[in-house]
């Protein structure tokens, strides 16, 4: 079993999601099924293969160190009530 009660809780907390017991059971089942299928990746020999993230060969994409002002339009809601930020 890839996903059990322990790591489900760990993952859900890492991604800030909560589930009802019923949903947790359902999703665990579905994910484990999916992971069983994904595990078939092992069949392919990838020793000596480098991982690929960027499909294009371009490198060194930069911008010059110039300032451009953006008119902040008050789109953000930046107020938080009663944050207890220092606690876990």
């Amino acid at each position: 079993m890839h996903i059990n009660k322990d790591n489900f809780t760990y993952i859900a907390n890492a991604v800030k999601l909560s589930f009802t017991d019923k949903d947790e059971k359902q999703i665990t089942k579905e994910l484990n099924k999916m992971l069983e299928y994904i595990d078939t990746m092992k069949e392919l020999d990838t020793s000596n293969v480098k991982p690929l993230t960027h499909v294009l060969p371009q490198t060194n994409v930069f911008r010059e160190d110039e300032v451009i002002c953006y008119d902040t339009s008050g789109q953000l809601n930046s107020e938080i009530d009663k944050i207890k930020v220092l606690r876990d």
Binding site: I11, A14, L17, L31, T46, V49, K50, L52
Partner: peptide
Amino acid sequence: VKRRIMLGAFTQSPGKYEDYYNKARKIRRL
């Protein structure tokens, strides 16, 4: 969406990165 977020986090979670995320990216190169 929630299902995929959970799956995504799993594939990079402690101990899983090499077997899932890296493996997938190696297959990507192949």
